[in-house]
Design a binder for these strands. Structure first.
Length: 588
DNA sequence: CGAATTTGACCCGCGC
DNA sequence: GCGCGGGTCAAATTCG
């Protein structure tokens, strides 16, 4: 208790903030650090109160532990002592010191020991005050860090918009690189081809250009479909699902002809502004949108969580979602819903069976998910969510629902407003995760528009951070898809893999154990050439995993993230020290 | 014994 | 029209 005045105050907080929380634990230390900080500051304000109320001094100094009833009478004793003792030491915090010298001290202590005790208490009080000051200063530092991070995110987003504008001005030639399948080729001739345009509604600057190219009806449609907050979108889809439930349980039939089928040019024509969709169609389409999460089932949870954190920040920023980060984390550990398996099939081109699950938290909930191991790398599980829950969700599930709905709504708002949204899916992907086009992609070739959040590999080390260009986000460096090919995790990640104890992803349980294919050997790891955000994240994860002293590691993680994202020449001493700390931690 | 899972059959859309 | 593949159903089976 005396030592380790770190970020999270004391042992009580470290105990209450396990590294990998269970579902009922609402706080995740690393990702919830804003909350943590606020708590810290709050505690900062309450420190005096705490010091004044807790009786750990009496426990420590008293030769014999006070009987249980002493706690009840303590306040009286304190007052009595202050009033009666002629000596002394008016520290103002003395309430507790008086405790030991009460009438009961006559039981075991003499007068001389009483004086010594008081002296010792005074000394301890002074130490405590010093520690309090230290804590306050640390809290200040943390607050500064937090504001720093917030500022960085804002700057990053601004930079994203700027870069996208530049990208649009240059050409649309690189736009199709991220798209899977051939739809892009078809689309080139459908809605005007590769017309440079601003991405959807990412910011005010983008709307004008969009409006220039779409009809009024389409903009109305887009407004209807994309402007509502998540909850509205969910509500709309929920209504649609309810209507569907009235007709059929599965909702397959209710969907009008267009949306449940492929995205052929004809279908795209139907989506055209000239054929504005009605509300029900939009809702049904929303429900048909899918969000696919690729995660390495044995990947260290910390790494996945941190990547999720980054994903979450960008998705939430773009969708105004208010989901708590910690909730999102919990959901990846266990996505918060109850699922019932209703089928399993062998899919073409993949030796691993695909399992079908249905949400059973409410009768008639239309949400489904599919779980399948990746054919290339069977350690990777692909979980695809479809639909919107028609019932209240626990926080953890709410996080996933909110985030996936945000991604899906962005996707669909683009596809519904005009065909160009499909034409430039990589823009959408970039917007969802601007730091790495290889981590969030959109597949328009699938029967349903699908956002894929890939948590299985690091982005290109050169992508996020360049020397001398701290905010350079290389949107122009769209990379071809290489899912499952193993994009050279860093050595620290390798160490993390080797010592990973956290392979208990809920995802890994989705496919029955009897169906689990033998795990493919891990791709060889290569050292990265330059530090990237993902490297830093992995290093932080390594540190967290390796070292129980979480507060110090948390500071290292925060600092390193700040350092890699900001990397300015502001002589942030925390930067260097934190990196060193990480290295030493990861080296252990 | 009830709930959950398995698994073969069936339905549907799409391409040829 | 037929075959293929994805998705779902529901009886059989397993599990707790």
């Amino acid at each position: 208790m005396d030592k380790g005045w770190g970020l999270t105050l004391d042992t009580s907080s470290s105990q209450s903030l396990p590294l990998f929380p269970s579902n009922d634990n609402k706080m995740f230390p690393l990702l919830g650090f804003p909350v943590n900080l606020s708590r810290a500051s709050k505690e900062d304000d309450e420190n005096r109160k705490v010091v004044g109320e807790v009786d750990f001094f009496s426990d420590r100094n008293k030769p014999t532990p006070p009987p249980s009833h002493d706690h009840n009478v303590k306040p009286n004793i304190v007052k009595k002592e202050i009033d009666e003792t002629p000596l002394h030491i008016n520290t103002g915090l003395q309430l507790l010191t008086a405790n030991t010298g009460s009438d009961q001290s006559t039981v075991d202590d003499g007068v001389s020991s009483d004086a010594e005790n008081k002296r010792a208490k005074t000394t301890e009080l002074a130490q405590l005050q010093v520690e309090l000051q230290r804590m306050n200063s640390e809290n200040k530092k943390l607050k500064e860090m937090l504001s720093h991070v917030t500022g960085n995110y804002t700057a990053l987003q601004m930079h994203l918009v700027t870069l996208m504008q530049q990208n649009q001005q240059r050409t649309g030639s690189t736009e199709n690189e991220v798209v899977q399948g051939k739809v892009e080729d078809k689309n080139v001739g459908v809605g005007g081809g590769k017309v440079p345009r601003q991405f959807l509604d990412i910011g005010p600057s983008g709307t004008a250009e969009v409006d220039d190219q779409v009809s009024d009806s389409s903009s109305d449609e887009r407004t209807r479909s994309s402007t509502p907050q998540n909850h509205n979108i969910e509500a709309g889809a929920r209504d649609g699902a309810r209507n569907n439930n009235g007709k059929s349980q599965l909702g397959r039939e209710e969907s009008p002809d267009s949306e449940s089928q492929g995205w052929s040019p004809n279908k795209l024509q139907k989506m055209n502004p000239s054929n504005p969709m009605d509300q029900s169609t939009a809702e049904a389409t929303m429900r048909k949108a899918r969000v696919s999460v690729r995660a390495r089932s044995e990947a260290p949870m910390v790494r996945i969580i941190i990547i999720l954190c980054i994903l979450h920040v960008f998705i939430n920023q773009l969708s105004n979602s208010q989901t708590k980060l910690s909730d999102l984390l919990l959901l990846q550990i266990s996505d918060g819903c109850q699922w019932r398996k209703y089928g399993q099939k062998m899919a073409k081109g993949n030796p691993c069976p695909r399992a079908y699950y249905r949400c059973t938290m409410a009768v008639g909930c239309p949400v489904r998910k599919q779980v399948q191991r990746c054919a290339d790398d069977r350690t990777i599980l692909v979980t695809t969510y479809e639909g919107t829950h028609n019932h209240p969700l626990p926080p953890a599930a709410m996080a996933m629902a909110s985030t996936t709905t945000a991604a899906a709504s962005m996707l669909l708002s683009g596809s519904m407003s005009s065909a160009d949204g499909i034409m430039n899916p990589n823009l959408l992907a970039r917007a969802i995760l601007p730091c790495s086009t290889s981590m969030a992609t959109l597949s328009a070739s699938a029967p349903f528009p699908t956002v894929t959040l890939d948590l299985t590999h690091n982005p290109n080390p050169l992508q996020f951070q360049r020397p001398g260009a701290p905010f350079q986000v290389p949107f122009l460096q769209a990379q071809p898809q290489n899912f499952g090919s193993g994009a050279a995790p860093i050595a620290q990640a390798q160490a993390l893999y080797n010592q990973s104890k956290f392979s208990g992803l809920q995802l890994s349980q989705d496919v029955g154990s009897s169906q689990l294919a033998p795990q493919a050997p891990r791709p060889p790891l290569q050292p990265s050439q330059q530090p990237s955000l993902a490297d830093t994240v992995s290093a932080a994860a390594s540190a967290i995993t390796a070292d129980p002293n979480f507060t110090a590691v948390l500071a290292a993680a925060i600092s390193s993230i700040i350092g890699s994202a900001h990397n300015s020449n502001n002589n942030n001493s925390n930067n260097n020290t934190s990196r060193t700390t990480i290295s030493s931690f990861s080296g252990n």
